[in-house]
Simulated scan of single mutants.
Amino acid sequence: MSIKLYDLAGIDDRRFSSNCWRTRFALLHKGLPHITVPKLFTSIHKISGDNHRTLPIITDGKTTISDSWAIVNYLEAAYPHKPSLFDKQDSLKSYSEFLQHWSLKAISFPLLQIIIKDIYDRLDPIDKPYFRATREKRFGKTLEDIVKNSEDNVEQFRSGLNPLRVSLKHRNFLSGKKPLYPDYIIAAALMWPRSMSPKQILHEDDTLNTWFKTMLSLYEGIGSKQPKEWVGI
């Protein structure tokens, strides 16, 4: 029986959620048969009532789990005979947990202040009132005001990614010789703007851009085949 992954979708079936992409990459890495089910923000509650309010959610037989970190730990425990996302190293698991928290502060939150209006523009019309109301309440300002200084914020964002560039200076992947969960965390974060914003977050000659192209080509190019806004990648 295939695992079912409930995945956040925008217009044109854009699968844009970085949280969901972490789980999708994890399933692909472990070679686990699965299907993805597109869901809108406003239909998440229909999956299992109020028990789970955010995506990703997976169902594996009678087991239902939400939260990408909980899911990856479940997959490692439930399928130990499949390729490990942490290469069976506790140190790499700890690094992954740190990187996931770091990416929320250093990547996801700054990105949101750059692309939040672009995201809104590419949501299903049904989701737009919910998205605008909840995000404007969170920030205390309109979506338009949030992105008012987005050009300046892009430069600051690029500078904030320097630790990743240093890590890739002498290795092919953040995990070393092969892609593992740390690479999927960052690749998933970049799938978000690639899918939903025309703003070129990475320069063409950026080390991260080269690495990201490699990540997009994995698993028969699953990442590269997704609807996108970026030019050339």
Rank of each mutant, 00 (worst) to 15 (best):
M1N: 04
M1W: 02
Y6A: 11
I11S: 11
D13G: 00
D13A: 03
D13V: 03
R14K: 12
F16L: 10
S18P: 13
W21N: 04
T23E: 06
R24Y: 04
F25H: 02
H29D: 08
L32F: 07
I35G: 08
T36W: 15
T36A: 12
P38H: 09
P38A: 05
P38Q: 06
K39I: 14
I44V: 15
I44C: 05
H45C: 07
K46G: 00
K46P: 00
K46M: 01
I47T: 15
S48Q: 12
D50V: 15
N51H: 02
N51M: 09
T54H: 06
L55E: 06
P56T: 14
I57K: 01
I58M: 09
D60Y: 07
G61T: 10
K62F: 14
K62Y: 09
V72S: 02
N73L: 10
N73F: 07
N73P: 12
L75F: 00
L75Y: 01
E76N: 08
A77N: 13
A78G: 06
H81D: 15
K82S: 08
P83C: 09
P83H: 02
D87P: 03
D87I: 03
S96I: 13
F98Q: 05
F98R: 11
W102D: 03
A106N: 12
F109Q: 14
F109C: 01
I114C: 12
I115L: 14
I116K: 01
I119Y: 08
D121Y: 09
D124H: 15
D127H: 06
T134W: 00
T134F: 02
T134N: 07
E136P: 12
K137Y: 03
F139M: 10
G140Y: 06
K141D: 06
L143D: 05
E144M: 11
E144R: 13
V147H: 04
V154F: 09
V154P: 00
F157I: 00
R158C: 02
N162T: 10
N162W: 11
R165S: 14
S167E: 11
L168I: 06
L168F: 05
L168V: 07
K169Y: 09
S175K: 00
K178D: 09
K178M: 08
P179W: 01
L180V: 01
L180T: 01
L180F: 12
Y181P: 00
Y181Q: 04
P182Q: 01
A187V: 05
A188W: 08
A188M: 08
W192T: 01
M196A: 10
M196W: 02
P198V: 14
P198A: 12
H203I: 10
E204D: 13
L208F: 02
N209M: 13
F212P: 04
L216V: 10
L216W: 08
S217M: 07
E220V: 06
G223A: 03
S224R: 14
Q226S: 06
E229R: 14
W230T: 10
G232V: 10
G232E: 08
I233W: 15
